[in-house]
Every structure is written in structure tokens, then in C-alpha cells.
């Protein structure tokens, strides 16, 4: 069932064209979150949307070769750990938990570093969780077979 999705050439071409720009846009939102609207949550969803689109058009198994399930799972944890790790590092540097000011000698630079890392963690987690959700729901019917 999973590879029998008959996609029209229009869809597959359009999605192939769109795939990279969506990810680029996601990354833009991701890094723009530092000083403007944007951030990890939104970026994560956008990036995930690219992958989900790909899976929808070309079938689940193709999608899984693109993002293997195991890697996806580890990335979920890595995202959370990145977030929490920043907090732990700031504690190690004698600050409060998630106190970005101590990450660098200059507090303002510290804030930048901290927020980017944390948002990156958030982004990775959100994206991978979204992909995982799609995969597990979409593959539901097949487990019974």
C-alpha cells in the first residue's frame, strides 16, 4: 500500500521544486528568531512540512529513506538535550539555569549565542516530532496487515 500512491507528474515536479525553498525558508525563520518574529517552533514546523510533503507525494518508504526513523528519534532527543545542555552549561559557568549572559564575556553576545542554540534545539525537536507524528499516523493501517 505504501508505495502505491499514484502521484501525478505535476505534483511530483512541483514538490521537488518547492522542497528546497521550504527548507531554506524554515532556516531563515529559525535564525531570524534571534531578533525578529520567528524562532524554533515555527521553523521546525516549516522544515517538517517540507519533509511531510515529500512523504505525501512519493510515499512513506521514500520519506523514510530520506529521514530514517532511528535518526529521527535520536534527533528528537538531541534537540531537547541541546536546549537543556545550554542551561547546564550556564550553570557550569556559574550563572543561573538558562542564564545566557555568562555564555560569553560580553552579555549581549552571550544572549545571542544562547538564544540561537536554544532555538536550534527547539527547532530540531519540533521538526523531528512533527515528522515522527506524520509517519506514525500515516503508517497506522499497515501494522495490522
Amino acid at each position: 500500500m505504501r508505495d502505491k500512491i499514484s502521484s501525478s507528474p505535476v505534483l511530483s515536479v512541483v514538490s521537488k521544486i518547492l522542497f528546497a525553498p521550504i527548507i531554506i525558508f524554515g532556516l531563515y525563520v529559525q535564525f531570524h528568531g534571534d531578533y525578529g518574529p520567528g524562532g524554533g517552533f515555527q521553523a521546525g514546523v516549516i522544515v517538517a512540512a517540507a519533509f511531510i510533503l515529500y512523504s505525501m507525494i512519493f510515499g512513506l518508504s521514500k520519506g523514510e529513506t530520506l529521514v530514517p526513523i532511528m535518526i529521527n528519534r535520536y534527533l528528537m532527543c538531541v534537540g531537547v538535550l541541546l536546549y537543556a545542555g545550554v542551561g547546564i552549561v550556564s550553570i557550569l559557568l556559574d550563572g543561573m539555569y538558562l542564564d545566557y549572559n555568562v555564555l560569553s564575556s560580553d552579555p549581549s553576545t552571550g544572549q545571542h549565542i544562547g538564544i540561537i542554540l536554544v532555538e536550534l534545539g527547539v527547532g530540531i525537536t519540533v521538526a523531528t516530532v512533527m515528522i515522527a507524528l506524520y509517519h506514525s499516523f500515516a503508517s497506522f493501517g499497515e501494522i495490522n496487515e
Binding site: 532511528m70 528519534r73 535520536y74 528528537m76 532527543c77 531537547v80 538535550l81 537543556a84 542551561g87 547546564i88 550553570i91 543561573m96 539555569y97
Partner: peptide, 22 residues
Amino acid sequence: FLDDAAALVVVLPLLISAIIAF
């Protein structure tokens, strides 16, 4: 770490939970 015990009692289980998830 002890200085930040207040945060760590919450963060530590959450952090470890991510590590052992899979």
C-alpha cells in the same frame, strides 16, 4: 550544581527522560 538545586530538581528528570527515551 547545588547552587542551582531549585532548577535542577525539575530539569534533571526531564533531561534524563530525553536521554533514555529510545
